[in-house]
Design a protein around this nucleic acid. Structure first.
Lengths: 144, 144
DNA sequence: TATTGACTTTGAGCGCGCTCCAGGATGTAC
DNA sequence: GTACATCCTGGAGCGCGCTCAAAGTCAATA
Protein backbone atom coordinates (compact mmCIF):
# COMPACT_ATOMS: atom_id res chain seq x y z
CA UNK A 1 0.00 0.00 0.00
CA UNK A 2 3.11 2.14 -0.25
CA UNK A 3 2.24 2.05 -3.92
CA UNK A 4 1.67 5.50 -5.34
CA UNK A 5 -0.81 3.92 -7.75
CA UNK A 6 -0.90 2.99 -11.40
CA UNK A 7 -0.89 5.52 -14.19
CA UNK A 8 -3.80 5.48 -16.56
CA UNK A 9 -1.61 3.97 -19.23
CA UNK A 10 -0.37 1.09 -17.17
CA UNK A 11 -3.81 0.41 -15.76
CA UNK A 12 -5.19 0.37 -19.26
CA UNK A 13 -2.63 -2.26 -20.24
CA UNK A 14 -3.32 -4.29 -17.13
CA UNK A 15 -7.04 -4.37 -17.81
CA UNK A 16 -6.93 -4.77 -21.56
CA UNK A 17 -8.55 -1.42 -22.20
CA UNK A 18 -7.38 1.91 -23.57
CA UNK A 19 -6.78 5.03 -21.48
CA UNK A 20 -9.67 6.59 -23.40
CA UNK A 21 -11.96 3.87 -22.15
CA UNK A 22 -10.84 4.29 -18.56
CA UNK A 23 -11.65 8.01 -18.66
CA UNK A 24 -14.91 7.23 -20.36
CA UNK A 25 -15.88 4.71 -17.68
CA UNK A 26 -15.13 7.26 -15.01
CA UNK A 27 -17.17 9.92 -16.82
CA UNK A 28 -20.23 7.72 -17.03
CA UNK A 29 -19.99 6.62 -13.41
CA UNK A 30 -18.80 3.06 -13.85
CA UNK A 31 -15.87 3.86 -11.63
CA UNK A 32 -15.75 6.39 -8.83
CA UNK A 33 -13.56 9.47 -9.30
CA UNK A 34 -10.08 8.09 -9.13
CA UNK A 35 -7.21 9.32 -6.93
CA UNK A 36 -4.86 11.95 -8.35
CA UNK A 37 -1.19 12.71 -8.19
CA UNK A 38 -0.08 16.28 -7.36
CA UNK A 39 -0.04 17.17 -11.03
CA UNK A 40 -3.62 16.08 -11.45
CA UNK A 41 -2.84 12.80 -13.18
CA UNK A 42 -4.94 9.80 -12.23
CA UNK A 43 -3.48 7.15 -9.95
CA UNK A 44 -5.30 3.85 -9.84
CA UNK A 45 -5.34 1.64 -6.74
CA UNK A 46 -5.38 -2.14 -6.54
CA UNK A 47 -9.05 -1.94 -5.61
CA UNK A 48 -9.67 0.06 -8.76
CA UNK A 49 -7.90 -2.62 -10.71
CA UNK A 50 -10.06 -5.41 -9.28
CA UNK A 51 -13.20 -3.50 -10.07
CA UNK A 52 -12.01 -2.67 -13.58
CA UNK A 53 -11.21 -6.29 -14.21
CA UNK A 54 -14.70 -7.18 -13.20
CA UNK A 55 -16.14 -4.52 -15.50
CA UNK A 56 -13.97 -5.75 -18.32
CA UNK A 57 -15.19 -9.27 -17.78
CA UNK A 58 -18.82 -8.16 -17.87
CA UNK A 59 -18.30 -6.07 -21.01
CA UNK A 60 -16.42 -8.91 -22.70
CA UNK A 61 -19.54 -10.98 -22.22
CA UNK A 62 -21.82 -8.31 -23.67
CA UNK A 63 -23.29 -6.75 -20.58
CA UNK A 64 -24.57 -3.35 -21.73
CA UNK A 65 -22.99 -0.26 -20.18
CA UNK A 66 -26.40 0.71 -18.80
CA UNK A 67 -26.61 -2.50 -16.83
CA UNK A 68 -23.12 -2.05 -15.52
CA UNK A 69 -24.08 1.45 -14.44
CA UNK A 70 -27.06 0.09 -12.57
CA UNK A 71 -24.84 -2.43 -10.83
CA UNK A 72 -22.21 0.17 -9.98
CA UNK A 73 -24.85 2.45 -8.51
CA UNK A 74 -26.26 -0.30 -6.32
CA UNK A 75 -22.76 -1.18 -5.23
CA UNK A 76 -22.17 2.39 -4.14
CA UNK A 77 -25.41 2.47 -2.19
CA UNK A 78 -23.91 -0.45 -0.30
CA UNK A 79 -26.34 -1.78 2.26
CA UNK A 80 -29.54 -3.45 1.30
CA UNK A 81 -28.83 -3.67 -2.43
CA UNK A 82 -27.39 -7.16 -2.25
CA UNK A 83 -30.44 -8.94 -3.65
CA UNK A 84 -30.78 -6.54 -6.55
CA UNK A 85 -27.15 -6.91 -7.40
CA UNK A 86 -27.36 -10.66 -7.19
CA UNK A 87 -30.35 -10.57 -9.52
CA UNK A 88 -28.34 -8.65 -12.08
CA UNK A 89 -25.53 -11.16 -11.89
CA UNK A 90 -27.88 -14.11 -12.12
CA UNK A 91 -29.63 -12.66 -15.15
CA UNK A 92 -26.35 -11.98 -16.83
CA UNK A 93 -25.15 -15.47 -16.05
CA UNK A 94 -28.26 -16.90 -17.65
CA UNK A 95 -27.56 -14.78 -20.70
CA UNK A 96 -24.04 -16.11 -20.82
CA UNK A 97 -25.28 -19.68 -20.64
CA UNK A 98 -27.58 -18.97 -23.58
CA UNK A 99 -24.74 -17.38 -25.51
CA UNK A 100 -22.58 -20.43 -24.93
CA UNK A 101 -25.29 -22.65 -26.36
CA UNK A 102 -25.56 -20.42 -29.46
CA UNK A 103 -21.82 -20.47 -29.94
CA UNK A 104 -21.62 -24.22 -29.57
CA UNK A 105 -24.31 -24.68 -32.18
CA UNK A 106 -22.47 -22.40 -34.56
CA UNK A 107 -19.22 -24.17 -33.81
CA UNK A 108 -20.76 -27.52 -34.71
CA UNK A 109 -22.31 -26.13 -37.87
CA UNK A 110 -18.94 -24.76 -38.93
CA UNK A 111 -17.22 -28.06 -38.27
CA UNK A 112 -19.73 -29.65 -40.58
CA UNK A 113 -19.33 -27.07 -43.32
CA UNK A 114 -15.55 -27.06 -43.10
CA UNK A 115 -15.48 -30.83 -43.42
CA UNK A 116 -17.65 -30.48 -46.47
CA UNK A 117 -15.31 -27.97 -48.04
CA UNK A 118 -12.35 -30.24 -47.38
CA UNK A 119 -14.04 -33.14 -49.12
CA UNK A 120 -14.83 -30.98 -52.10
CA UNK A 121 -11.29 -29.69 -52.31
CA UNK A 122 -9.99 -33.25 -52.11
CA UNK A 123 -12.16 -34.35 -55.00
CA UNK A 124 -11.22 -31.31 -57.03
CA UNK A 125 -7.55 -32.18 -56.75
CA UNK A 126 -8.10 -35.77 -57.84
CA UNK A 127 -10.63 -35.54 -60.62
CA UNK A 128 -10.63 -33.76 -63.91
CA UNK A 129 -10.75 -30.13 -62.82
CA UNK A 130 -13.37 -29.11 -65.38
CA UNK A 131 -15.78 -31.78 -64.21
CA UNK A 132 -14.96 -31.24 -60.57
CA UNK A 133 -15.71 -27.57 -60.77
CA UNK A 134 -19.24 -28.16 -61.86
CA UNK A 135 -19.77 -30.69 -59.08
CA UNK A 136 -18.27 -28.32 -56.60
CA UNK A 137 -20.80 -25.70 -57.54
CA UNK A 138 -23.65 -28.03 -56.83
CA UNK A 139 -22.15 -29.43 -53.65
CA UNK A 140 -21.17 -26.05 -52.25
CA UNK A 141 -24.63 -24.72 -52.85
CA UNK A 142 -25.94 -27.04 -50.17
CA UNK A 143 -23.11 -25.93 -47.92
CA UNK A 144 -23.75 -22.19 -48.16
CA UNK B 1 -41.23 -26.37 -55.30
CA UNK B 2 -44.84 -25.53 -56.20
CA UNK B 3 -44.39 -23.00 -53.41
CA UNK B 4 -44.89 -19.43 -54.57
CA UNK B 5 -42.40 -18.39 -51.92
CA UNK B 6 -42.43 -16.74 -48.51
CA UNK B 7 -43.38 -13.13 -47.95
CA UNK B 8 -40.80 -10.89 -46.37
CA UNK B 9 -42.77 -10.91 -43.15
CA UNK B 10 -42.98 -14.65 -42.81
CA UNK B 11 -39.36 -15.11 -43.80
CA UNK B 12 -38.36 -12.56 -41.19
CA UNK B 13 -40.21 -14.56 -38.55
CA UNK B 14 -38.70 -17.82 -39.74
CA UNK B 15 -35.18 -16.46 -39.52
CA UNK B 16 -35.53 -14.43 -36.35
CA UNK B 17 -34.93 -11.14 -38.12
CA UNK B 18 -37.08 -8.16 -39.04
CA UNK B 19 -38.27 -7.35 -42.55
CA UNK B 20 -36.08 -4.23 -42.31
CA UNK B 21 -33.06 -6.40 -41.80
CA UNK B 22 -33.90 -8.66 -44.72
CA UNK B 23 -34.11 -5.66 -47.06
CA UNK B 24 -30.91 -4.29 -45.57
CA UNK B 25 -29.07 -7.55 -46.16
CA UNK B 26 -30.21 -7.55 -49.75
CA UNK B 27 -29.14 -3.93 -50.19
CA UNK B 28 -25.64 -4.60 -48.95
CA UNK B 29 -25.25 -7.73 -51.04
CA UNK B 30 -25.49 -10.37 -48.36
CA UNK B 31 -28.29 -11.96 -50.29
CA UNK B 32 -28.81 -11.88 -54.04
CA UNK B 33 -31.79 -9.91 -55.39
CA UNK B 34 -34.73 -11.98 -54.31
CA UNK B 35 -37.59 -13.22 -56.52
CA UNK B 36 -40.68 -11.06 -56.87
CA UNK B 37 -44.40 -11.60 -57.15
CA UNK B 38 -46.31 -9.82 -59.96
CA UNK B 39 -46.97 -6.88 -57.66
CA UNK B 40 -43.27 -6.44 -56.99
CA UNK B 41 -43.34 -7.95 -53.50
CA UNK B 42 -40.43 -10.17 -52.53
CA UNK B 43 -40.92 -13.92 -52.47
CA UNK B 44 -38.28 -15.92 -50.67
CA UNK B 45 -37.37 -19.47 -51.67
CA UNK B 46 -36.29 -22.35 -49.46
CA UNK B 47 -32.74 -21.82 -50.67
CA UNK B 48 -32.95 -18.19 -49.54
CA UNK B 49 -34.14 -19.42 -46.19
CA UNK B 50 -31.22 -21.78 -45.76
CA UNK B 51 -28.76 -19.05 -46.64
CA UNK B 52 -30.46 -16.56 -44.34
CA UNK B 53 -30.34 -19.03 -41.49
CA UNK B 54 -26.65 -19.39 -42.06
CA UNK B 55 -26.19 -15.62 -42.10
CA UNK B 56 -28.21 -15.34 -38.92
CA UNK B 57 -26.05 -17.93 -37.25
CA UNK B 58 -22.87 -16.11 -38.23
CA UNK B 59 -24.21 -12.76 -37.05
CA UNK B 60 -25.42 -14.28 -33.79
CA UNK B 61 -21.83 -15.30 -33.16
CA UNK B 62 -20.49 -11.82 -33.93
CA UNK B 63 -19.20 -12.21 -37.44
CA UNK B 64 -18.98 -8.66 -38.82
CA UNK B 65 -21.17 -7.76 -41.78
CA UNK B 66 -18.02 -7.01 -43.79
CA UNK B 67 -16.79 -10.55 -43.34
CA UNK B 68 -20.15 -11.96 -44.29
CA UNK B 69 -20.05 -9.81 -47.41
CA UNK B 70 -16.66 -11.18 -48.30
CA UNK B 71 -17.93 -14.70 -47.85
CA UNK B 72 -21.08 -14.03 -49.88
CA UNK B 73 -19.01 -12.56 -52.71
CA UNK B 74 -16.73 -15.58 -52.84
CA UNK B 75 -19.74 -17.83 -52.80
CA UNK B 76 -21.16 -16.03 -55.81
CA UNK B 77 -17.91 -16.33 -57.68
CA UNK B 78 -18.38 -20.05 -57.19
CA UNK B 79 -15.45 -21.95 -58.58
CA UNK B 80 -12.05 -21.75 -57.10
CA UNK B 81 -13.02 -19.80 -54.01
CA UNK B 82 -13.44 -22.85 -51.83
CA UNK B 83 -10.18 -22.48 -49.93
CA UNK B 84 -10.76 -18.82 -49.22
CA UNK B 85 -14.23 -19.52 -47.95
CA UNK B 86 -13.00 -22.35 -45.79
CA UNK B 87 -10.37 -20.04 -44.33
CA UNK B 88 -13.06 -17.57 -43.35
CA UNK B 89 -15.08 -20.27 -41.66
CA UNK B 90 -12.06 -21.67 -39.86
CA UNK B 91 -11.04 -18.26 -38.60
CA UNK B 92 -14.53 -17.58 -37.39
CA UNK B 93 -14.70 -20.94 -35.71
CA UNK B 94 -11.47 -20.18 -33.87
CA UNK B 95 -13.00 -16.89 -32.77
CA UNK B 96 -16.04 -18.75 -31.51
CA UNK B 97 -13.88 -21.14 -29.52
CA UNK B 98 -12.15 -18.18 -27.92
CA UNK B 99 -15.48 -16.56 -27.16
CA UNK B 100 -16.70 -19.73 -25.48
CA UNK B 101 -13.64 -19.75 -23.23
CA UNK B 102 -14.26 -16.11 -22.26
CA UNK B 103 -17.88 -16.83 -21.51
CA UNK B 104 -17.06 -19.87 -19.43
CA UNK B 105 -14.59 -17.87 -17.37
CA UNK B 106 -17.19 -15.20 -16.78
CA UNK B 107 -19.78 -17.82 -15.93
CA UNK B 108 -17.49 -19.31 -13.31
CA UNK B 109 -16.69 -15.91 -11.86
CA UNK B 110 -20.37 -15.14 -11.58
CA UNK B 111 -21.09 -18.44 -9.87
CA UNK B 112 -18.50 -17.49 -7.31
CA UNK B 113 -19.83 -13.99 -6.77
CA UNK B 114 -23.43 -15.14 -6.59
CA UNK B 115 -22.54 -17.74 -3.97
CA UNK B 116 -20.84 -15.02 -2.03
CA UNK B 117 -23.92 -12.83 -2.18
CA UNK B 118 -26.09 -15.69 -0.98
CA UNK B 119 -23.86 -16.29 2.02
CA UNK B 120 -23.97 -12.67 2.93
CA UNK B 121 -27.73 -12.54 2.62
CA UNK B 122 -28.01 -15.64 4.79
CA UNK B 123 -25.92 -14.09 7.54
CA UNK B 124 -27.85 -10.86 7.33
CA UNK B 125 -31.10 -12.68 7.99
CA UNK B 126 -29.69 -14.54 10.99
CA UNK B 127 -27.59 -11.97 12.82
CA UNK B 128 -28.42 -8.64 14.31
CA UNK B 129 -29.20 -6.62 11.21
CA UNK B 130 -27.25 -3.58 12.33
CA UNK B 131 -24.08 -5.58 12.85
CA UNK B 132 -24.64 -7.68 9.74
CA UNK B 133 -24.98 -4.65 7.56
CA UNK B 134 -21.55 -3.43 8.43
CA UNK B 135 -20.06 -6.84 7.76
CA UNK B 136 -21.92 -7.03 4.50
CA UNK B 137 -20.29 -3.84 3.35
CA UNK B 138 -16.86 -5.21 3.94
CA UNK B 139 -17.58 -8.60 2.46
CA UNK B 140 -19.28 -7.23 -0.62
CA UNK B 141 -16.40 -4.93 -1.29
CA UNK B 142 -14.25 -7.93 -2.04
CA UNK B 143 -17.02 -9.29 -4.21
CA UNK B 144 -17.37 -6.23 -6.39
C1' DT C 1 -65.84 3.70 -54.30
C1' DA C 2 -63.29 3.99 -50.14
C1' DT C 3 -60.58 1.94 -46.81
C1' DT C 4 -57.38 -1.20 -45.04
C1' DG C 5 -53.09 -3.46 -44.95
C1' DA C 6 -49.01 -5.45 -46.69
C1' DC C 7 -45.76 -4.33 -49.34
C1' DT C 8 -42.34 -1.04 -52.24
C1' DT C 9 -38.32 2.63 -52.48
C1' DT C 10 -34.77 6.13 -51.06
C1' DG C 11 -32.50 8.15 -47.76
C1' DA C 12 -32.08 9.79 -43.21
C1' DG C 13 -31.59 8.79 -38.22
C1' DC C 14 -30.27 6.38 -34.12
C1' DG C 15 -28.14 3.97 -30.03
C1' DC C 16 -24.07 2.01 -28.56
C1' DG C 17 -19.45 2.17 -27.15
C1' DC C 18 -15.98 3.98 -27.72
C1' DT C 19 -12.28 7.14 -30.01
C1' DC C 20 -10.16 11.11 -31.12
C1' DC C 21 -9.05 16.11 -31.32
C1' DA C 22 -7.62 20.68 -29.72
C1' DG C 23 -5.48 23.17 -26.53
C1' DG C 24 -3.14 23.24 -22.25
C1' DA C 25 -0.41 21.83 -18.00
C1' DT C 26 3.32 19.37 -15.90
C1' DG C 27 7.64 16.78 -15.29
C1' DT C 28 12.16 14.73 -16.85
C1' DA C 29 16.40 14.79 -19.80
C1' DC C 30 19.78 17.05 -22.27
C1' DG D 1 15.92 26.70 -21.62
C1' DT D 2 13.93 23.69 -24.67
C1' DA D 3 12.53 19.43 -26.28
C1' DC D 4 9.74 15.52 -25.39
C1' DA D 5 6.53 12.53 -23.10
C1' DT D 6 2.56 12.00 -20.51
C1' DC D 7 -1.17 13.46 -18.85
C1' DC D 8 -5.47 16.68 -18.44
C1' DT D 9 -10.44 18.49 -20.12
C1' DG D 10 -14.67 19.16 -22.90
C1' DG D 11 -16.75 18.11 -26.68
C1' DA D 12 -17.08 16.37 -31.28
C1' DG D 13 -16.86 12.37 -34.37
C1' DC D 14 -17.15 7.68 -35.87
C1' DG D 15 -18.21 2.79 -37.29
C1' DC D 16 -21.47 -0.61 -36.80
C1' DG D 17 -25.84 -2.59 -37.59
C1' DC D 18 -29.72 -1.78 -37.97
C1' DT D 19 -34.31 1.04 -37.85
C1' DC D 20 -37.51 4.10 -39.34
C1' DA D 21 -39.94 7.87 -42.01
C1' DA D 22 -42.21 9.40 -46.15
C1' DA D 23 -44.52 8.69 -50.03
C1' DG D 24 -46.31 5.51 -53.15
C1' DT D 25 -48.29 0.86 -55.36
C1' DC D 26 -51.41 -2.81 -55.34
C1' DA D 27 -55.15 -6.24 -53.92
C1' DA D 28 -58.82 -7.44 -51.25
C1' DT D 29 -62.82 -6.22 -48.60
C1' DA D 30 -67.00 -3.32 -46.76
Amino acid sequence: MQNAGYTIRSMAERCGMTAHTLRYYERVGLIQPVGRARNGHRRYSDADEAWLHFLHCMRATSMPIREMQRYAELRERGDATSLQRRKILEDHQAGIAAQIVELQKAHALLTHKITNYKMIEQRTRVENPAVADREEDRALESVG
